[in-house]
Write a protein that binds this DNA or RNA. Structure first.
Length: 410
RNA sequence: GCCAGGGUGGGGUAGACGGUUAUCCUAAGGGACUGUGGAUCCCUCGACCCGGGUUCGAAUCUCGGCCCUGGCCCCA
């Protein structure tokens, strides 16, 4: 038998309904902040992602050559594509631009809990606003979107400036190496790397940076960095709005293109892969031929959110099963159409089963049975049976619809 | 790429010092039952992940692969 590809999943209807419900809540939260949904291609030129993240990531991407000999790839993330889209078509739009998306991404990695080769991200990008208010809005929206999903999480918010200030004497490669150690919270590797770069004296301040939990301490350690006012303003806005977060200036995100504010969120029940959101302020558009516009955004690991919140009961709405004898089939289809027209999920027997078997089936899958036979056809009525209580009445179609509607309202 | 534990009908399982027709539950389809319930009874359907090796004989032992679960690495 054919297997599905490694690291991919099939979703049965119950799971799809849960996923769509959570997705809709996230989109709705974003919509209320003015973020409108966009969509970019599932595949892009390979170059788009190597420009952003370097050649090293190719081995973890689904790359292929198309029939025209172009090097293409299934998108491994969405931000680069959205910024390409901005450069292609968004430059003339009034700033700031607020966009959001839900998109599947592909990475060739070893699957484990909460990590798949095809996975979905919910994200937003705020383009063209370079202020503390913009940074704060993105964090507040992240908080609201995650809360709307019902996931419980810890939010860590930081800024790269203090760390970069401490590392200012180091070469870009050196900075990158140190930030990688900090991102991993690997004290041993950090000290080794610092010694190798002849900056052992930075070990204590860097450790203190990761450890401190108020912004006053930050500037005691890192000095009066130019971004101080911006950082203080951002955090003051978050505090004023009652956002529950942890200042964390040890976040390095290991990335070259983040320029200022950075944040991460972590959920429970997730094992080793417990980060469910990452984001921050960045500059990318100039890489794709646009202006050097400031942007800020985040991406949520949608599948991880779903794993973390677990299964929950679904309200499938009121379901109607139409049961009929052969001579009443046409009338049954009419009745079904009327119930569907009233908005009810309505299923008609297709198996040519006997009346008893049809009702037995309806009892398993529906809330009401609408029974139609010779008697109802002659009388122009339907028999409506409540499959919970077993009560049934022979009434006209409109009354039956009204009664089912009352059940749905309760 | 590395490590650990796994893989028996659609789901859940028994069988394991190698030995009859591979167990049971459940689901699904049919029937008892051509106008009324999830019960009951009967029937049907349907599995040893793939390949090599050892053997008279492999679900069982062995090797390799694939896949699953979790961890490492990575995490744009």
């Amino acid at each position: 038998m054919l297997q599905r590809p490694r690291g991919t999943r099939d979703f049965l209807p119950d799971e799809m309904e849960r996923r769509r419900l959570i997705e809709q809540r996230m989109l709705e939260a974003a919509r209320r902040w003015g973020y409108r949904e966009v969509c970019t291609p599932d595949f892009e030129h390979l170059e788009l992602f190597t420009m952003k993240s370097g050649e090293g990531i190719i081995q973890e991407m689904y790359t292929f050559e198309d029939k025209g000999g172009r090097q293409m790839t299934l998108r491994p993330e969405v931000t680069a594509a959205v910024l390409r889209m901005y450069v292609n078509e968004g430059k003339v739009l009034p700033k700031p631009i607020r966009w959001c998306y839900v998109a599947d991404c592909f990475r060739y990695e070893r699957p484990q809990k909460g990590r798949y080769r095809q996975f979905w991200q919910f994200g937003i990008e705020l383009i063209g606003a370079d202020t503390a208010s913009a940074d704060a809005e993105v964090i507040m929206l992240a908080d609201e979107v995650l809360n709307s999903s019902g996931v419980t999480f810890d939010l860590h918010v930081g800024h790269l400036a203090p760390m970069k200030h401490l590392l200012t004497d180091l070469s870009p490669e050196g900075q990158r190496a140190i930030m990688a150690c900090l991102d991993k919270r690997d004290q041993g590797a950090l000290e080794a790397a610092l010694d190798e770069l002849d900056h052992g004296h930075l070990s204590d301040p860097l450790a203190a940076l990761s450890g401190c939990r108020t912004i006053e301490e930050i500037f005691e350690i890192a000095g009066d960095v130019p971004e101080r006012a911006r950082i203080e303003d951002t955090f003051a806005l978050l505090d004023a709005q009652g956002i529950d977060y942890l200042p964390d200036f040890g976040i390095a995100r290991g990335l070259d293109y983040y320029t200022g504010m950075v944040f991460e969120g972590f959920a429970q029940n997730l094992g080793a892969e417990n980060q469910i959101i990452g984001g921050g302020a960045y500059r990318l558009a100039h890489l794709f031929g646009g202006d050097d516009v400031a942007s800020c955004g985040f991406a949520i690991g949608f599948d991880r959110v779903m794993v973390s919140i677990g299964d929950f009961p679904l309200d499938s709405g009121t379901i109607v099963g139409v049961v009929c004898t052969p001579e009443a089939r046409e009338r049954a289809l009419e009745a079904a159409r009327a119930f569907r027209g009233a908005g009810f999920r309505t299923e008609v027997d297709l198996m040519q089963r006997g009346m008893g078997a049809q009702i037995a089936h309806a009892a398993k899958t529906a809330d009401f049975a609408v029974v139609l036979g010779r008697r109802e056809v002659d009388a122009g009525t339907v028999t409506l049976r409540n499959l919970e209580t077993g009560e049934q009445r022979e009434i006209n179609l409109d009354d039956a619809i009204a009664e089912v509607a009352r059940h749905g309202d309760r």
